[in-house]
Design a protein around this nucleic acid. Structure first.
Lengths: 349, 349
DNA sequence: ATGAAAGCGCTAACAC
DNA sequence: GTGTTAGCGCTTTCAT
């Protein structure tokens, strides 16, 4: 428990505290000699400056907060990886807050950030967040906050996303190209940016292809597996969609489950495509056609922008949308061929 | 940027700073009246105490560090969820450090924790960690540190794990029961606790069943997908195992890939079982038999123990192993029936 | 080139 | 019941 602090180093070296401090910060007006002496001892004793003292004095904490709705999710997990890679590079520390899709928790977390614990915030909004005063207030305190994935575009800061609208349009078009005419959209919370944009892409593709639009084909999913399962079961039964566009990975997995239960065959009865970063998508039964988001890059870019705002006092965050393209990966779940693929021959005997 | 601090509150209320401070901490010797006045204003202005000042003064930071080898991993992701649930309850903050399986980074992170940034540490060791001096040193500084999953049992602290040995034995036995006689073990880094225990379970089951043990059937996997792919391809080709026990999820996914490539059928040619917390395991082709670890509970328990050590000064961490049982979930990847399951009938025409 | 001293915002003795 | 004061460990003028 004997902690090493500047006082101790100073005493041991017969120097003043301030000299030691300056030496360690490589100040110009300390002689090379003493610098070396100081650094040598500091290393020997593994001196680590007390971050609280330092933060208190300098009004910066060298840490950022990452606020996400959930973590058992391939997208966020990859995004954190991207964020963390930049933070490590910059010598920053990363605090994680998980809102579990609860706006109240989001507000509470943000409130707790109002006094210097972090220098900046990266956030992906919870699905139940309906107003943005908590974010605004934080900004007014001078804290840079940048959005990624689930964003709010009217707050004079950067939003890092994927091309949700275009990707959804493409996914829907893909289903149509494969012969679907009765396509269900498993929609994510309509209070979110992604929920809306992904739905708009779907709706526009339906219209542009002259297909009838049926409000009932939009399934307003929740955050609860059981409830969503029932919703899907109901619509798969009653509306008999021949195509399903899942706006998030979880709904795709549920779709597999429901189809199994209802003995609906993918892709023969229902073609399925989903936003998903699932590593194992290619090994599902059948392999899942996905829209793969560049999650790592999104995290990385969000962090980079935030650090730009932290590094340079001149750099001001301004409203801007930075968009990374997703990739549509076609697999068997949207195949319209009757011929089994070679890799599946083994399944038939 | 106008920050609200005790001084400001005191000025506005015509009280001294210490009175305000005590009122907010609900001290006994402040009148109910002033307490209410103080709290009212504090809420109105959304006063948040400066955590650095407070930490500096009280020598505790109300934050813990979680050090993990990787994050794009269902196990760790669930464990973090468990940890975070407890931390939230206790009002603690969670710093995340990802070592990316790099022992040097692990050492560096731990060194940085030597001066009060956190009150305690939860760690799952990197696969390249070979000595534990950095951990010992941290302990000597008085910081409680508890292990989970990838542990080191000789350090006088708690280790929270699953029953790696028993589960591996069961998994291997399961393959044997299904008729396998030539079983490969895809082994995780032998410097890790889990790598060793899982192998031992495999070896003992092989022996106990009177099967010949072949050193060559143990594949020493790495952290690199490409390299591992080649290793698997080689052994699947040359040794023609009829059963494969993957010690971690990643190796199972790779096995699917390699089997596809080599036109080996699961489970007809090779039966496959793996430690895995993959949500979609039931929808893989074929559905994957798994050993599912109670990852959330492991994280939760690790955090609970750590907080016990933080809450009560009397409570001393001592060497103890807390073991949560994993569950073997049998699915088609280890099936030995020739009859296709009903749910798969649709695949045949 | 080095040191003395003030102070970041808060807490906790200790006065009054 | 309220106020005064002395730090926590560090950074940073300002003196020497």
């Amino acid at each position: 428990m004997e902690s090493v602090d500047l006082k101790k180093l100073a005493r041991l070296l017969n120097l003043s505290i301030s000299t030691v401090s300056k030496a360690l910060r490589d100040s110009y007006d300390i002689s090379k000699e003493t610098k070396e002496r100081v650094i040598a001892l500091a290393n020997e004793l593994n001196y680590q400056p007390n971050p609280h003292a330092s933060s208190l004095r300098r009004h910066k904490s060298k840490t950022i907060a990452v606020i996400i709705p959930e973590i058992a999710n391939n997208f966020f997990t990859l995004a954190i990886n991207g964020i963390e890679s930049i933070a490590q590079e910059k010598g920053y520390h990363v605090l994680i807050y998980i809102t579990h899709e609860d706006a109240e928790k989001e507000v509470a977390f943000i409130k707790h950030l109002h006094n210097g614990r972090v220098d900046g915030v990266l956030i992906s909004l919870s699905s139940s967040t309906k107003d943005y005063d908590h974010i605004k207030e934080l900004q007014e305190r001078g804290l840079p906050i940048v959005f990624f994935d689930r964003v709010y575009e009217h707050l004079n800061t950067a939003c890092i996303t994927t091309d949700d609208y275009e990707s959804s349009y493409k996914a829907t078009q893909h289903l149509i190209d494969k012969g679907c005419t009765n396509i269900a959209h498993l929609m994510f919370a309509e209070s979110t940016s992604i929920g809306n944009k992904r739905m708009k892409g779907y709706v526009d593709a339906i219209h542009d292809n002259g297909l009838p639009f049926d409000e009932k084909m939009i399934v307003h999913c929740t955050n609860d597996d059981e409830q969503d399962y029932k919703l899907l079961e109901k619509i798969f039964r009653s509306k008999r969609p021949d195509g399903v566009f899942a706006s998030v990975e979880r709904y795709a997995i549920l779709s597999y489950d429901v189809c199994n239960r209802l003995k609906l065959s993918i892709p023969e009865d229902i073609k399925l495509i989903s936003f998903s970063n699932l590593q194992a998508a290619a090994f599902l039964n059948p392999p899942l056609s996905t829209i793969r988001q560049p999650a790592f890059d999104i995290g990385k870019e969000a962090a980079s922008i935030l650090f730009k705002a932290l590094d340079k006092k001149m750099f001001k965050l301004k409203q801007e949308n930075i968009v990374f393209k997703s990739t549509l990966v076609e697999r068997e779940s949207t195949s319209n061929s009757i011929i089994r693929k070679a890799s599946d021959n083994k399944k038939v005997f």
